[in-house]
């Protein structure tokens, strides 16, 4: 069994986008924004993979103090053996696509509160 990561990082390319997400004022911290990005990536269908070249940003202990995130990831992405590596990948992927999306629509509102499908 491979060893999962003990830290989570963000690539240089995504660091600016993450900072941008936070400076828009909706998130209280970069970690909140990164988690949001992670969820965004899961919702977009990413369930596996890993990101190379991420620069350490957090210890998993501070990202997931009670381990519940790990359990959640295991539940949502059962084929992944290393949930934190996956989390890191999801965060980076999410940041990348959010940056594209936010660049276009300018706001997270529609992402967060999608309009109900019209009848």
């Amino acid at each position: 069994m491979a060893t999962d990561k003990k830290t989570i990082g963000i690539t240089k390319a995504n660091a600016a986008a993450l900072a941008g997400l936070v400076s828009a004022g909706r998130f209280g911290s970069e970690l909140d924004a990164a988690k949001f990005a992670m969820a965004y990536a899961i919702k977009a269908g990413v369930t596996a993979g890993s990101t190379d070249g991420a620069e350490t940003k957090w210890n998993v202990g501070s990202v997931d103090p009670d381990g519940s995130m790990r359990s959640l990831l295991e539940a949502l992405c059962p084929e992944s053996a290393e949930p934190y590596r996956l989390a890191e990948h999801l965060m980076n992927e999410g940041i990348k696509s959010l940056a594209v999306k936010i660049g276009a629509s300018g706001d997270l509102y529609e992402t967060l509160f999608p309009a109900p499908p019209s009848p």
Binding site: R26, F27, G28, D32, A39, L112
Partner: peptide, 14 residues
């Protein structure tokens, strides 16, 4: 208040 609440926003997406 919103920023505090946003720490759980990622769960809403999921």
């Amino acid at each position: 208040e919103l920023q505090q609440a946003m720490s759980g926003a990622w769960c809403a997406l999921l």
